[in-house]
């Protein structure tokens, strides 16, 4: 699984592509944990190339959001979420945990 991280002044952008499921969610979680453990709590997840997200992936994001939001030190936001993925997030009732943006400039600019 390829995960790229781009650091900006006020936040870091994480990007991966394809499926996030039980097979690779732990690896994805490791990358996010490394970021938060290094003190980066303003995160943008670029989901423009993510085609599928299982619950294993959502729990990684929920867990990361908990870490980022602790003592109001930051936040994880999502950008360019595929419509079907967004619909499933709404249906399950987890959409309120993440701010979503349609374009990268707005997402990075939110910090």
């Amino acid at each position: 699984m390829d995960v790229t991280t781009t650091n900006y002044n006020r936040c870091s952008v994480i990007k991966t592509s394809g499926r996030i499921d039980g097979s690779n969610a732990p690896e994805f979680g490791k990358v996010l944990k490394e970021l938060t453990e290094s003190g980066i709590f303003n995160l943008v997840f670029d989901m423009s190339e993510v085609t599928f997200m299982a619950s294993a992936g959502w729990w990684i994001l929920i867990d990361t959001q908990k870490t980022c939001k602790k003592t109001n030190r930051g936040e994880l936001v999502l950008v360019k979420v595929d419509k079907a993925i967004k619909d499933s997030l709404n249906l399950v009732g987890m959409s309120s945990y993440f701010k979503t943006f349609e374009d990268m400039t707005a997402a990075v600019g939110s910090f």
Binding site: G22, F52, A54, L91
Partner: peptide, 21 residues
């Protein structure tokens, strides 16, 4: 439709994951 196919894919993936785990 595309949205329904995604939902079936999600349900089947969750079921398979539960079986494996």
């Amino acid at each position: 439709d595309e949205s329904q196919i995604y939902e079936v894919q999600l349900a089947v993936d969750e079921a398979a994951t539960n079986i494996i785990e």
